[in-house]
Simulated scan of single mutants.
Amino acid sequence: MPRKPKRPCRHPGCPNLSDGVYCEAHRGLYARENAHRRGYGREWRAARDRFLRGHPLCEECLKRGTIVPATVVDHIIPHRGDQTLFWDEGNWQALCKACHDRKTGRGL
């Protein structure tokens, strides 16, 4: 059975071809542990659901005078693997997906 043709590496400016998304030289730059290994397992989902029940509206939208349901629990200060900061509910805020994506895209 024939194999799929190789595709260009998605790393900007890389001329290499790859079987996956990135070539061997750039694969490590984009590697990331799965969500469960980063701490977002069953315990997090239960805590997130409990937090969203207590904070049902997007905090950023409320500041602008708009009522939008919150769907994401955001870490105000990125935890970067620090479990104390990860589980500190004082570091959580309820956001809608659009506000969370906007905040995350800015790197905050």
Rank of each mutant, 00 (worst) to 15 (best):
1 M>I: 09
1 M>R: 10
2 P>L: 13
2 P>W: 03
2 P>E: 13
4 K>E: 13
5 P>E: 11
5 P>T: 04
7 R>V: 12
7 R>T: 13
8 P>G: 01
8 P>M: 00
9 C>H: 00
12 P>A: 09
12 P>D: 07
13 G>S: 09
14 C>N: 01
14 C>H: 00
15 P>C: 00
18 S>K: 00
18 S>I: 00
18 S>E: 00
20 G>N: 06
21 V>C: 01
24 E>W: 05
24 E>S: 09
26 H>R: 04
29 L>K: 08
29 L>D: 06
31 A>L: 08
31 A>S: 12
31 A>W: 11
32 R>I: 10
34 N>K: 09
34 N>A: 11
34 N>M: 07
35 A>T: 14
39 G>S: 14
40 Y>E: 13
40 Y>C: 13
40 Y>S: 14
41 G>H: 11
42 R>W: 12
42 R>Q: 15
42 R>T: 15
43 E>R: 15
44 W>L: 07
45 R>G: 06
47 A>Y: 01
48 R>S: 09
50 R>K: 07
50 R>Q: 12
52 L>G: 09
53 R>Y: 02
53 R>C: 11
54 G>P: 04
54 G>S: 08
55 H>L: 04
55 H>N: 15
55 H>A: 06
57 L>C: 07
58 C>M: 02
60 E>T: 12
62 L>W: 06
62 L>H: 03
65 G>H: 08
67 I>M: 06
68 V>A: 01
68 V>E: 07
70 A>K: 04
72 V>Q: 05
73 V>R: 04
73 V>W: 03
73 V>D: 05
75 H>N: 14
77 I>L: 12
78 P>Q: 11
78 P>A: 09
79 H>Y: 12
80 R>H: 13
80 R>S: 10
82 D>K: 03
84 T>C: 03
84 T>Q: 12
86 F>L: 10
87 W>S: 08
88 D>R: 09
89 E>R: 10
89 E>Y: 02
89 E>Q: 13
90 G>N: 15
91 N>I: 14
92 W>H: 10
93 Q>W: 10
93 Q>V: 15
93 Q>A: 13
94 A>K: 09
95 L>S: 06
96 C>F: 02
96 C>V: 03
97 K>R: 14
98 A>M: 01
100 H>W: 03
100 H>A: 02
101 D>G: 01
102 R>I: 01
102 R>C: 03
102 R>H: 06
104 T>E: 14
105 G>I: 05
105 G>R: 12
105 G>T: 09
106 R>S: 13
107 G>D: 09
108 L>D: 15
108 L>C: 02
108 L>F: 10
